[in-house]
Design a protein around this nucleic acid. Sequence first.
DNA 1: ACAGTATCTGACCGATCGGTCAGATACTGT
DNA 2: ACAGTATCTGACCGATCGGTCAGATACTGT
Lengths: 220, 220
Amino acid sequence: MSTSPLDASVAQGRPITPGSTRPSPATELKAIALEQFALVGFGATSLQAIADTAGYSKSSVLYHFASKEALLEAVLGPAIDRLGRVLAAFTPAGDARMDRDAFVEAFVDFLLEHRLEVHIFINQGQSMRGTPVIDRANELIAELTASLFAADSTTQERIRFGVALGGAAYTLVAGMTFAGDALGPPDEIRFALIQVVSELLSPAPLPRLAETGDADSATG
Amino acid sequence: MSTSPLDASVAQGRPITPGSTRPSPATELKAIALEQFALVGFGATSLQAIADTAGYSKSSVLYHFASKEALLEAVLGPAIDRLGRVLAAFTPAGDARMDRDAFVEAFVDFLLEHRLEVHIFINQGQSMRGTPVIDRANELIAELTASLFAADSTTQERIRFGVALGGAAYTLVAGMTFAGDALGPPDEIRFALIQVVSELLSPAPLPRLAETGDADSATG
DNA sequence: ACAGTATCTGACCGATCGGTCAGATACTGT
DNA sequence: ACAGTATCTGACCGATCGGTCAGATACTGT
């Protein structure tokens, strides 16, 4: 009995096994909340469900986070901070198109690291307007759009940008989280994403794609 | 007072103004439910909210639809039927790649017509497994994947397919529904989508744009 | 040993959830 | 005019929602 590591140890609120230092309750709760918010949505996730999964009481969740919305802030905040930093590094002043290739790489790495957070505010951002952390994310997306495209951008360009953003977010969550590793090895996923996002953000197909060949796709 | 057409007329359950024949209550409820399910999610949408928006009581909603899940079935069913027909027309037997350009056009038209439904089962399909209508949609997506790609498809191809599917669904909802007409005129959107989806589903960039003799390493 | 603090919990709150049901009302064909 | 049916509603149900609070327990520095 009590095969689950969550049962006996965490139920008391502190790690018992001295060897593997269990993450703090707040960290654990944030991780569970992140997954649930992305999977079933913020509105459809109950604090009770989060507490049950973590092995705590609902009161404990509300001890660590003042409210459900505060928990959302804590969950999304770091990812949005990081997005802000990625954007700031590539839009220093008025000069928008600095080093687009490097930007795409940094952006894809951001997506890979924070795919669940991105999925949340991509797919639920519109219905959560008013929540500070969501508004901040929406502002950053608007900033990103503005820095990538001039004011006279075409429908074509806007569509390609939207497809790149939403497509990457969807693929990462649906493919990596839900479908397991059916999508491919992580390094291949990263390479393919960088390529397809670059392609989508460029007015024409990548110019130097000609001789790249396979790169490292054969190395498993 | 009572400027809203919903107020006086529908509150009694039947259209009063004889000129403009109001849609049936069931149709109206489905339209409102569709929007809410897509906007805030199925789990976060209450029957009361749907009823209030339509100007009916919650009991009336449950008179027309036996349950919340039955309402979801009624909302998504037609779109999934249509998707099934689109797929059936282009995968008659084992021959998968019939006329890919025509298929992409039909598929994009399907996306344009049922963007909210697609958004629902793209973004909430994983958390609604077990619901018959959602399972049916997931099967169709799997069938689509199988008909587009051989069993030995590369990571690159799978990523591109996912980006096309998720990206188109996201762009149509976020761009057209939430951002109004900021994306562009409908015919331009359609044209741009057909082009970008075609490009993503092709193993190599569009042949006309560059003379890259590479063919992307996928053609093995 | 002891006081102070951090953490966790059950009991409880009003509000809302999906759903049931009896009855009121409107429409129908005769 | 009348019976039958379709439609709509309020009252009500148990369950669950996010959140509060007093008190139990564990840990801390002294």
